[in-house]
Simulated scan of single mutants.
Amino acid sequence: MDPFFSAPCPSVRASGSDDARLGSKIATSVQHIEKALATWPLSDSGIAFNGGKDSIVLLALVQYVLSHRRTETSSGGRADDPDARCAPEGNFIVDSEFSWSSLALSPARRGSSDSVRTIFFLDQNNFPEVLEFMWDVAMKNKLDVVIIRKHIKTGLRCLNSRPREEYGSCLVRPLKVVFMGTRRSDPGGTNLSTFSRTDEGWPDIIRVNPLLDWDYHDIWNFTMRAELPYCSLYSKGYTSIGSVETTRPNKHLWQEKMQRYLPAWCLSSGALERSGRTAKPAQEAAPFL
């Protein structure tokens, strides 16, 4: 990556007040994740991962909580105690003593009883760069991956209809809870709550939305500060990635003088995030909302 694209924009140079604001959102998200893991068995849960900027932040936060649960267990604490908190008193303090590296992705313990399935929803219209990124994250972080190649609704119904005696492994157990990276600015996100059942006509699943009240720049501030990986398309002016047919670089990032697009994190306003998305063709899978 050349220096132009690796240099941070003003929008991701967090000040002390920005850190405090983001720290509060991290604390709330961590608590939501902890509550979900204390309420439902880990073996019934999964993380929806599509290779997008929101899903990589979600994955990092869930892994962060799981790593602390392992630490508590190894030190004699109760990992299933709903009152146990990674962040005391609901405050996630980001100050001079805080290390953002504690939120970086790290290899999971593949196949272990305290790992969570990562659900890949794959489509023939995925960008090759997105698929490459997804598999790279899966391999480097030793994720337990479940691949659903069907329409999302059909794939979930197939997964959840297997008889118990045919489970074979935890990977094919029915999904009762799915962690998602949905934000309120996403289509269908306005009326969601942190814990929401799927809509009528979908398999009965609890959607956990820890990032619901994050905004576009929260996602990029977190990604840059925690040094998370991200799909290469974001460095080329893409700000919201869907299918190949419905996604273009964001016109608001085009620099006429340099004849190139600024990277996604330089977008001036989160309200412009979906400016590169076009109308969805009828045959494209419906969003998991």
Rank of each mutant, 00 (worst) to 15 (best):
Q124L: 03
G16Q: 04
D123N: 13
I56F: 04
K153L: 01
R78W: 01
T247E: 00
F222H: 10
L131E: 09
P263R: 08
G52R: 07
L212H: 14
F133T: 07
N209P: 10
I56M: 00
R69W: 11
L103R: 12
H151P: 06
L122H: 11
Y64D: 07
L289N: 15
V12R: 00
R21N: 09
E200H: 10
L59H: 13
I219Y: 05
G237I: 01
L159H: 11
S275C: 11
D2V: 00
Y234R: 02
P82W: 10
V12H: 00
A27L: 03
F121L: 08
M258N: 12
L175W: 13
S96F: 02
T278L: 03
F98Y: 13
I26N: 01
A79W: 15
R197F: 13
R225K: 14
R183C: 04
G168R: 10
G242A: 00
A138M: 00
R183M: 05
I147T: 13
S15V: 01
W214P: 08
L37P: 06
D81P: 14
P10V: 04
S99N: 13
G16T: 10
E72A: 15
L171I: 15
P8H: 06
K251E: 06
I33G: 02
G237H: 09
A138W: 02
D83H: 14
M139C: 06
K236E: 10
L228M: 06
A87V: 08
P3N: 12
S75M: 09
E200Q: 06
I47G: 07
P287G: 15
K140S: 05
G16R: 06
N126L: 01
F127N: 01
E165N: 15
V172F: 14
F92H: 15
V116H: 02
C170W: 11
A226G: 12
G237T: 04
L122N: 14
S235H: 04
S235C: 04
G276M: 02
A27Y: 05
G237C: 04
R78N: 15
P263H: 08
F5Q: 08
N209W: 09
L42G: 00
E97C: 02
K150W: 06
L289S: 10
P187V: 09
D114L: 02
T198V: 06
W265C: 05
K257E: 12
T247S: 11
G181L: 09
A36Q: 11
